[in-house]
């Protein structure tokens, strides 16, 4: 390597960390131009530094994601147990009582939970807000408001011609007239259209009601997936409608199937 001096990794680190004088920089850059090994060594070092920066950025994203997900309106207070000499004895007794109670409750839940009951508990008929219904609505909206669901469904096909709003109302009309398979088709079509257009119209309503449609059709894993999405997102419009107990019931229904 001609007149170039021997460089060790520490020396190259100092160069990359900007700790060199102008003269030292010039010397190194001159040596780099005709030393492939040195170029490679420097290149690997640069990769390592850029990797660290990328890892740092990834960690920041993860932290912000956690903050975002934890932005709940109210946090449950943390209750600290007072420690006493007999705490383990009483704790074990209390735990045993709770365990027995929990097992009994679970057994009761297992035997009593049913598709019909869960659906009835969760289903609330969707009503078009007053300002959007009435004389100024489309035929489809007017039929829906008047609960003439068969007429609504007669206007739905082919689904390709329907707007996202119409697909949602069609899905609701199908649900309310006892046609869950048709409701599923329309809600899924609505979500497909939303994915394509990336304009998430009636998305949160569809999350909830498609979940209920899956319950009605006995597709409990799919229902649970949608309900889990709602339950985990405190900003979802239907967040208060879905509890962890509902998720447990869906899991039980899936086991019983």
């Amino acid at each position: 390597m001609s007149n170039a001096k021997e460089y060790n990794m520490e020396y190259l680190m100092q160069y990359l960390d900007g700790e060199f004088s102008t003269a030292e920089n010039m010397q190194l850059e001159s040596d780099l131009s005709n030393n492939i090994d040195l170029q490679n060594q420097l290149s690997y070092l640069r990769m390592a530094i850029e990797s660290v920066k990328l890892g740092g950025l990834n960690a920041r994203i993860a932290t912000i994601a956690d903050e975002f997900r934890n932005e709940k309106p109210e946090e449950a207070p943390v209750i600290k147990m007072k420690k006493t000499r007999t705490v383990s004895y009483y704790a074990l007794r209390i735990a045993a009582v709770f365990l027995i109670a929990a097992c009994s409750y679970f057994a009761l839940l297992y035997t009593t939970v049913s598709q019909e009951k869960l659906f009835a508990e969760k289903f609330v008929p969707y009503e078009i807000p007053a300002s959007r219904s009435g004389a100024h609505g489309t035929d489809l909206e007017i039929f829906y408001t008047q609960q003439r669901f068969d007429q609504v469904l007669s206007l739905m096909y082919p689904l390709e011609d329907r707007t996202q709003k119409e697909l949602f109302l069609g899905g609701m009309a199908a649900m309310r007239s006892g046609k869950p398979a048709a409701a599923k088709e329309m809600f899924e079509k609505l979500m497909e259209e939303n994915n394509k257009s990336q304009d998430f119209v009636y998305q949160e309503d569809a999350d909830y009601y498609l979940g209920l449609t899956y319950v009605k059709l006995g597709e409990y894993d799919k229902a649970r997936n949608l309900f889990l999405h709602i339950e985990k997102d405190p900003k979802h419009s239907y967040h208060s409608q879905v509890s962890s107990m509902d998720l447990l019931k869906l899991k039980i229904l899936s086991w019983k199937k």
Binding site: R60, I64, E67, F68, M191, N194, N195, D207, L228, H229
Partner: peptide
């Protein structure tokens, strides 16, 4: 960059999340 990431989460998280959960993904 933190502000940018926060903004992306607040604006797009819901839609992106639906995109995945609707297409066979878990939460």
């Amino acid at each position: 960059i933190d502000d940018a990431i926060r903004y992306i989460y607040s604006e797009y998280h819901e839609g992106l999340s639906s995109l995945i959960t609707y297409n066979s993904g878990s939460w």
